[in-house]
Design a binder for these strands. Structure first.
Length: 813
RNA sequence: GCCGGAGUGGCGGAACUGGCAGACGCACAGGACUUAAAAUCCUGGGGUCUCUAAAAAGACCGUACCGGUUCGAUUCCGGUCUCCGGCACCA
């Protein structure tokens, strides 16, 4: 009877025999299977951990049986806000709570019975790890990919602290629910935008869910258009606008600058200065919520200035309005109210002229604003051209005159990595009055995070108040200097951990270049879909940057990616303490054992979908394993008896089921379709029971062979259980040193198959036919069949469609 | 608003490339074993209707909805609705 004791027995044996230790000599067979590492929380493992790690481990075990040398490490993303918030609440130091949590989580992960090789564990909050996180920062800095600038950050006025983006939910603080505002601070950024094009273009080659690629494409937001230069009337001042519709250039009736745009002050005439100032104030004060509201009416003011149209030479009034974003493109737009909804709305409100320059291609009377492509009108020599041709013609003309060019813009922004928080990796930078920004020399790494720090939130970086940390000497001139008081976003830590795992004990460098280029990229990466735009993009950026610095020889960190779905509470809502719908795996595991629990997770849900929790089926899985155990008992009973040795009809039938199961389970497991894989194993078991019950004169040896194959294909899904019954049968330890059985195509060919007979597309009857029969023979068999003759009596047969092995459709009137 | 993904029995979910819809389970019902229960085993099953004492048999409708292509559509095409996810004044 399978239970928790059996789990423990085999976990111990696996550990003692070092069964899952990665063998470096089999590098040619390596398969790097990685689950997203987790945050060490105080609670026990939740269903989400099991749902991520259990099935992925089954996949990895399947690969092991196929002969791969699986590298499956585990670690902890240990820096981050929850520990710090917990400390603020309870006074328990983040380091103490985190390390304690890691200990209990490690224990539970071991009890899960996955193949994790703990020799390669990585914990991001330990100096031996974050030393190299800091080293990464310095390399990016040296490469010009890390820079400092002033930027608005999320600020919670109640908690008096900066919040990370992920802490802001619908513009409200995750902790106290007060509304988040913006505050300007000087921050460090990583220049991820330098890789925008490659990040976009290389997605095509990745074996990732299309949904995830879509999210990344969306996030990167490539937009092809042109930059066009306008001159301010009566001055030498020029400015450029970005547009995707240069074909509508002649429809420009006004210009709009973002209120923050730098030339606003220069061009505003005295007459309009006070209203412009007033509007700028107004725009600054608006909360994010108001600014993002789509129902909001457009606002703006005239600057008094005019621009000269680069083609027509006409005067065009220049306005400022907050519907133009300072952070995208050039921070200003040419307004074409006839062919842009926003410009149209603005023009109507402020009574600005609207000039149609595009007619619909089919000449229909399309109402304004007309935003589709079409044919140019009111555009001088460009009249009659279609939009695509006109775009090219107009930009080429402007380019000749030095007034424009084709241009690509991206929505992607640089990655803000500074955090005004304690529990993270200190930014390895020193500020010297004489030498300016000085990176900490690599030999001085790590910049240790001090233990005794006041980290109550009061709007200042906690490290600022720690004088022994903050005060240092300049590595260049030796004079007193100050350290950067901020810490790095924890996404920095997780952007390179997969590079550290295979060489986690290296204290000379983050990783050995030669070794890591053999172990990477990760072959299979599994984790939640919520990381689509953040972690997965950042990690790709790191890989590309390190490649260009000469450390890596591959372009992408994760060749294949799968997302597990989300297991919701029984009420269909996301599990949360406040909703009281949290399901804990523990009681199930105590009652049924870890194999039953993980197998139920695989069987009861479509892996990539997830769904509301419901334990109706968990007993079914337990019952299934009991049935397997009984068939194993049967094998032992039958061993003494004589039985026959030839393969007659029942054996052939059982052999068919066996080979079909092997084939299908192989295919389904490969694709993470665990539910159907397990269903196929159940079918094989049913076939074994049928054979046992219905066949008097058994081929005992064959029967045992089939049971052994069943155990082999079952073992990835129920590892402890399979190991146990494998032993009961007296087979050699371990079942995980067995090979995945090969299925025989010949066994899948049956002498006779049942096919459906349709008349006019409707199934009327089914007949048995020799599987070797060709189309003509099948047609003859069908038409000479008595039942078919009866059914088609008095009808004229017009056509017979034969689909081999499936059906015959008789078209008759 | 825009862009994705999804919608299949009472339930979880299957269905290759356009070829027998509902695999495998759960729950349910009937039966066997049992003093009884549990466990186990066997059988049944989308819906409506016709015929029938009942069974058997048959007809029609069924993969969100409406229409199309096709010998044949859960699958392809056009339109509509609902749910989930992403983006959201990105010029």
């Amino acid at each position: 009877m399978y239970n928790k004791e059996i789990d423990r027995k085999w976990q111990k044996k696996w550990e003692e025999t070092k069964l899952y230790k990665f063998n470096r000599d089999r590098l040619d067979k390596k398969l790097y299977c990685l689950e997203m590492f987790s945050y060490p929380s105080g609670a026990n493992l939740h269903v989400g951990h099991w749902y991520n790690f259990g099935p992925t481990d089954s996949w990895a075990r399947f690969k092991r049986l196929q002969g791969y040398e699986v590298f499956q490490p585990m670690g902890f993303d240990a820096f981050g806000l929850p520990a710090e918030n917990y400390a603020i609440k309870t006074g328990i130091h983040p380091q103490d709570s985190t390390m304690k949590n890691i200990e209990t989580m490690e224990k539970q992960l071991r009890e899960m019975g996955a193949m994790f090789d703990w020799d390669y564990e990585v914990i991001t909050c330990l100096p031996e790890y974050y030393k190299w996180t800091q080293w990464m920062f310095l390399q990016l800095y040296k490469a010009g990919l890390a820079y400092r600038k002033e930027a608005p950050v999320n600020w919670c006025p109640s908690c008096q602290t900066v919040l990370a983006n992920e802490q802001v939910i619908d513009n409200h603080c995750e902790r106290c629910e007060s509304e988040v505002t913006k505050k300007n601070l000087i921050q460090w950024f990583f220049k991820i935008t330098a890789y925008a094009e490659e990040l976009l273009e290389k997605l095509d080659k990745l074996d990732w869910p299309e949904k995830t690629k879509k999210i990344q494409r969306n996030w990167i937001g490539k937009s092809e258009g042109a930059e066009i230069e306008f001159r301010i009337e009566n001055t030498d001042i020029t400015f450029r606008v970005f547009t995707t519709r240069p074909d509508t250039l002649c429809g420009v009736t006004y210009m709009v600058l973002a209120p923050e745009h730098e030339i606003v002050d220069k061009i505003t005439t005295d007459e309009y200065r006070s209203s412009v100032e007033e509007y700028k104030e107004f725009a600054k004060k608006q909360s994010e919520i108001e600014r993002l509201s789509t129902v909001k009416e457009k606002t703006g003011v005239f600057t008094g200035a005019y621009a000269i149209h680069p083609i027509t030479g006409e005067r065009v009034p220049i306005w400022i309005a907050d519907y133009v974003l300072a952070t995208y493109g050039t921070g200003c737009v040419m307004a074409v109210p006839a062919h842009d909804e926003r410009d149209y709305e603005f023009a109507v409100k402020f009574n600005l002229p609207i000039v149609r320059v595009i007619d619909s291609a089919d000449g229909s009377d399309a109402p304004l604003p007309y935003v589709e492509y079409g044919v140019l009108v009111n555009s001088g020599k460009y009249n009659g051209l279609d939009s695509a041709t006109a775009k090219k013609a107009i930009v080429e003309q402007l380019a000749k005159e030095g007034k424009g060019e084709f241009k690509v813009n991206y929505r992607l922004r640089d990655w803000l990595v500074s955090r005004q928080r304690y529990w993270g990796a200190p930014i390895p930078i020193i500020y010297c009055e004489h030498c300016g920004i000085v990176p900490v020399p690599e030999k001085d790494l790590p910049v240790l995070l001090p233990y005794d720090v006041e980290f109550t939130p009061d709007g200042e970086s906690p490290l600022k108040k720690c004088s022994e940390f903050i005060n240092t000497t300049c590595p260049q001139c030796g004079k007193p200097a100050k350290r950067d008081a901020d810490t790095l976003d924890t996404f920095v830590c997780s952007s390179w951990y997969y590079l550290r795992y295979p060489d986690n004990k290296n204290d000379k460098e983050p990783f050995d270049k030669e070794w890591i280029n053999k172990m990477l990229p990760v072959d299979m990466y599994v984790g939640g879909a919520e990381h689509a735009a953040m972690h997965l993009l950042y990690a790709r950026f790191f890989t590309k940057a390190l490649r260009d610095m000469g450390y890596l020889e591959f372009d992408e960190p994760f060749l294949s990616l799968r997302h597990q779905g989300v297991i919701l509470g029984p009420d269909g809502n996301k599990m949360s303490k406040s909703k009281g719908n949290v399901i804990s795996p523990d009681s199930y595991i105590n009652e049924y054992g870890s194999d039953v629990f993980r197998m139920y997770l695989m069987f009861g849900f479509a892996y990539e979908e997830g769904g509301p929790w419901n334990d109706d089926g968990i007993k079914a899985v337990a019952r299934f394993l009991n049935r397997v155990e009984r068939i194993v008992e049967r094998v032992k009973e039958l061993r003494g008896s004589k039985g026959k040795t030839e393969m007659s009809a029942p054996e052939k039938e059982l052999n068919y089921e066996r080979n079909r199961a092997i084939k299908e389970v192989e295919k389904d497991t490969e694709e993470f379709h665990f539910n159907t894989a397990i269903a196929r194993i159940m079918e094989l078991l049913n076939a074994l029971y049928k054979y046992d019950q219905e066949t008097e004169d058994k081929n005992v040896g064959f029967f045992e062979e089939v049971v052994a194959d069943l155990l082999r294909i079952l073992s990835p899904f129920a590892p402890h259980f399979a190991e146990e019954v494998w032993e009961q049968l007296g087979y050699e330890y371990s079942i995980f040193n067995q090979r995945w059985p090969k299925w025989d195509p010949n066994a899948l060919v049956r002498d006779e198959v049942e096919i459906a007979i349709q008349i006019n597309g409707k199934v009327k009857t089914r007949i048995m036919v020799p599987s070797a029969a060709d189309d003509k023979e099948l047609e003859d068999i069908a038409l000479s069949n008595e039942e078919v003759k009866e059914l088609t009596k008095g009808m004229q047969i017009q056509k017979v469609i034969v689909v081999k092995g499936r059906l015959i459709n008789i078209v008759a009137k």
